[in-house]
């Protein structure tokens, strides 16, 4: 062991103690066994504030092993503060390899996006979840929402969508769009854009959701039916973008709007930075990629 490793030896592998990891793994196993069901767990204090992904970090810490390759994204990007900090955290406490490439990662911890590149068998996608309860918007009582889940009383979920259509003429919910998992539990997919909802359906990867402040874990096992709720006459639709990515020219991906100047200049670029970079490495170009290179 080198000096650096000894200096942090006071931390157990992946920060959490083994008992805690076992407890969380039990919760994860239960969550996998009951797809979409919110399993309570004894969430620990983590060395970061609530809202920064304490749930996702605990899940990742419980499933990660020394051989794993970790990727962390925040709203699709590998290089934002939250992603960088969490990546550094696991490098420090678990000495794992990290990557920004979706295809190379065995565990991807995410805040609010699913990578554009289709996930593979053996990969684990860990979501950071702020509010796990999809019914809370209309029914604040936890005792009641748990009963509603137990008895499969989900009419209320459609009330929310109804309100959307009544107010906006269409279902205006664009993120945290509720889904029904394997025909049974209604689940909040965390604040991902509804653009990503279809990626959850029959995904080859295991999807785990951790809510630290709310002390809930839920899961979607690989190859599980995930259906976005809708009305017959207002079917579920994903966002469409008028133009391709300004940097890599990709169509059919989720784009972020970037303001360029104070004269109304703007561009739309891939929210998934890894995807965008790989496309550019392959030689794809968008209409602003030249200028971008100059900055």
């Amino acid at each position: 062991m080198n000096a650096h490793a000894e200096a942090i030896a006071q931390y157990n592998f992946a920060y959490l103690d083994e008992q805690t990891k076992r407890m969380i793994r039990r919760a994860i196993l239960k969550a996998i066994a009951i797809p979409g069901y919110q399993v309570p767990f004894a969430s620990r204090e983590m060395p970061m504030p609530y809202g920064w992904g304490t749930g996702g970090v605990q899940v990742t810490a419980s499933v990660i092993g020394p051989q794993d390759v970790l990727k962390v994204i925040d709203q699709g990007a590998d290089d934002t503060t939250n992603a960088v900090s969490i990546r550094a955290f696991f490098q420090k406490v678990a000495q794992v390899s990290v990557t920004t490439h979706t295809g190379e990662a065995t565990i991807i911890q995410t805040r609010h996006r699913i990578p554009e590149e289709p996930l593979k068998e053996g990969q684990v996608l860990v979501y950071q979840v702020p509010i796990p309860e999809p019914l809370r918007f209309l029914e604040p009582r936890e005792t009641e929402t748990r009963k509603m889940h137990a008895l499969e009383e989900y009419g209320l979920m459609h009330v929310k969508l109804y309100e959307d259509i009544a107010q906006h003429g269409h279902i205006a919910t664009t993120f945290a769009y509720p889904v029904k998992v394997e025909g049974r539990y209604v689940m909040d997919p965390s604040p991902t854009p509804k653009f990503d909802n279809p990626k959850m359906h029959m995904s080859k990867a295991l999807q785990l959701f951790g809510a630290g402040r709310e002390k809930r874990i839920y899961a979607i096992p690989p190859y599980t039916h995930v259906e976005s709720l809708d009305f017959d006459d207002h079917p579920f639709e994903v966002q469409r973008f008028e133009e391709p990515c300004a940097l890599c020219g990709a169509h059919g991906v989720y784009l972020d709007e970037v303001v360029l100047d104070d004269r109304g200049g703007r561009m739309f670029v891939c929210s998934d930075t890894d995807h965008c970079e790989e496309r550019r490495a392959e030689g794809h170009r968008g209409h602003l990629s030249g200028e971008e290179a100059a900055t």
Binding site: Y154, G155, L156, H158, V159, Y162, F231, D232, D233
Partner: peptide, 11 residues
Amino acid sequence: ERLMAVGQRHY
């Protein structure tokens, strides 16, 4: 709400 609760899905 009650209609949606009994499974009506046509807005």
